[in-house]
């Protein structure tokens, strides 16, 4: 599909979405006085060929806003947090990832309600080793310089004007060659967290690829999953990821006897089973 037709498709999607009061309508027309509110779709991009794709950025605020689009590095810690990594601290894989992603534009000024596509593609070098390479694309509003009015300046005393520069990052993943991963679920248990019981387990991972999917805890005789966690990622920099899920008292009460924990790919990606374990947790 060409960029142009994809752009038309996504624009149409956004138009449909904006017209739908039930679904995205509520999301787009949420009260937003702030300048710089934003919508980004998709929330994750995988590039495994030479052709590019697009990410849609939409100004859902009530004023014109300028956004900066950049590439940043994040690493996942064992506890699942994504922490920023300075470019000067990049390892060879992260440097390669930064070097191969092409994207445009890098700065967009949008009136309220207006979407625009950011085109991106990977240009991996011919001698790039097989593997998974990743950067995080950031979308951030640039605040307009604010006019200080007389009423803002107190005759006496100190006041503070602290403006958040806020934005989102989404992963851009490049898969070079054939990459695989295997994951196992280990040692599920109930532990006491700061604010009550938590389900704790670890995901151990081997291979060159990340995994991404849905984690479901089910029990025979209980219709709905006891725990449902979507969009759970384990990135290649991790051999093992710890997961803690806070439980409501109702959820915790169901943790007796045999339960089944399944980690599956997202339904959109086929829903294939990545890992499962049957365990007694109590």
């Amino acid at each position: 599909m060409s960029f142009k037709s994809l752009h038309k498709l996504t624009n149409r999607l956004l138009t449909i979405a904006a017209a739908s009061a039930v679904t995205l309508g509520a999301l787009v027309s949420a009260p937003a006085q702030a300048q710089g509110d934003l919508l980004v779709a998709p929330t994750r991009v995988i590039l495994d060929g030479s052709r590019g794709t697009e990410v849609i950025l939409s100004n859902i605020g009530s004023e014109e806003a300028t956004y900066r689009i950049g590439l940043e590095l994040r690493r996942m810690l064992e506890n699942g947090r994504l922490v920023p990594v300075e470019r000067t601290d990049a390892n060879s894989s992260e440097e390669a990832a930064l070097g191969m992603i092409r994207y445009a534009p890098r700065r967009i000024t949008l009136p309220p309600g207006q979407p625009q596509a950011v085109r991106l593609a990977a240009r991996p070098g011919a001698d790039l080793p097989d593997g998974e390479y990743r950067v995080h694309m950031s979308f951030k509003a640039i605040p307009r310089p604010r006019e200080v009015t007389a009423s803002d300046t107190p005759a006496e005393g100190v006041s503070i004007q602290l403006i958040p520069i806020y934005g989102v990052t989404i992963p851009i993943i490049v898969r070079q060659g054939r990459v695989e991963a295997q994951v196992a679920i280990n040692q599920p248990s109930i532990v006491q967290g700061e604010s009550g019981p938590e389900l704790a387990f670890s995901l151990s991972r081997v291979g060159d690829s990340s995994t991404y999917g849905v984690l479901e805890v089910t029990k025979e005789g209980v219709e709905e999953p006891i725990v449902l966690l979507r969009g759970l990622a384990v990135y290649p920099e991790l051999d093992e990821r710890q997961v803690r899920v806070r439980l409501t008292p109702e959820q915790a009460a169901n943790f007796n006897g045999q339960i089944r924990i399944e980690y599956r790919e997202m339904p959109e990606a086929g829903g294939g089973l990545i890992a499962a374990v049957d365990s007694f947790v109590g």
Partner: peptide, 17 residues
Amino acid sequence: TADATAEILDALVLNND
């Protein structure tokens, strides 16, 4: 065999309300 694929087109929204 594979071309560019965009997975999971959920939208992500951030508001400073």
